[in-house]
Design a protein around this nucleic acid. Structure first.
Lengths: 187, 187
DNA sequence: CGCAGATGGAACCGATCGGTTCCGTTCCAG
DNA sequence: CTGGAACGGAACCGATCGGTTCCATCTGCG
């Protein structure tokens, strides 16, 4: 039974938190952007921190509902992740991976937002591991999946800095070299 | 003729800005940590923003004066960068690359702090390019140097998240594969 | 029609933000 | 010894922060 105001708040929060960071975005600005009254805000969220968490959970849902299906639609090869990332880098206003940005902006490991971001990164690593296994790449110690995630994070940061999709293309090239040298299942 | 207060302010700013981020650190906390009076602060810095800039310039100087000599001392091979990075990741309180953190925390491209961080990243890229050339690696389009920097950034972010030097070791392995496949000068 | 729930506006709160001002002290050089 | 520069402490400023409260309005449903 979410009312309209809640959705508008989350829409505004998603835009502003992502573009400016969570600390840099005040409640006031979210109210102005969403057109929601101050009272209504606190009827739907106990605090700004809870809105931040709801924002992160929404982005996590976006990963499950949009990002991974796009990778699957391309065939689900580990390299496809970097092609989907490249498309995102081309979008105006790309500003890096939400979860990398959040865990760097809120570095306290006991912060629920930090923890959620770390959990999401673990989900991404597991996704790489699944794709590798499904395509016959052996990764007994898990290092290959971690390296691909590290490449993904490096491309996200570089893309946010250069505001160009080149980083994703070059990350894909690195990943390609990595996979060429990787052992195959049953070999 | 910098007085003692200025140095103490920069010492405190370096610790706090790096550990918590610049927005999360108030002037008040810097005054408490440094033991400097509020008036003295504004005698040395026109604003908090200028202290942030001075902090970044100090870190940039640290790169020139400490980081790159450590790499040179190991032989100046491109892979040596990752070994020096690994040592840093082992230090308690490691929280990622100052300049990556800053350009993500202050995403406005016209922000002087953001610009300084971007400039420093360009310096790092050029450093990789120099090391590559000095050790006989061809990199006509500069993509190899950019990829190494991307690996460095990925390892920094991952190291900040995992609080372990493993990311640097794995980044070095990726770089090694990359260099093995790279063309050599005169070939 | 009339009621109830959801809403937006605005006033208000204490706390904190970055920044200014004044004053008393310390310390070193002339 | 004396003057001035540098300093620390504290009061103070306006602005903004996150958060609370009250009220008028709108809307949909019985």
């Amino acid at each position: 039974m979410p009312t309209n105001a809640r959705d508008r708040l989350l829409d505004a929060a998603e835009d502003l938190f992502y573009a400016q960071g969570t600390r840099a975005t005040g409640v006031e600005q979210i109210l102005e952007t969403s057109g929601v009254g101050r009272a209504s805000f606190y009827r739907h969220f106990a605090s700004k921190d809870e809105l931040v968490l709801a924002y992160l959970e929404r982005r996590r849902g976006h990963w499950d509902a949009v990002f991974t299906p796009l990778v699957r639609a391309r065939g689900g090869h580990p390299l496809d992740v970097f092609d989907v990332l490249a498309e995102r880098l081309e979008a105006v206003g790309y500003r890096g991976c939400t979860f990398v940005n959040t865990l760097l902006e809120l570095p306290d490991p006991s912060d629920p937002a930090h923890r959620l971001a770390v959990e999401q990164k673990e989900t991404m690593r597991a996704f790489f591991a699944d794709l590798l296994a499904e395509h016959g790449y052996r990764d007994d110690d898990g290092s290959l999946a971690r390296k691909l995630l590290m490449l993904y994070d490096g491309a996200s940061v570089t893309g946010a800095r250069e505001r160009s999709p080149r980083a994703a293309h070059e990350a894909r090239e690195v990943a390609e070299v990595l996979l060429t040298a990787a052992p195959r299942t049953g070999a």
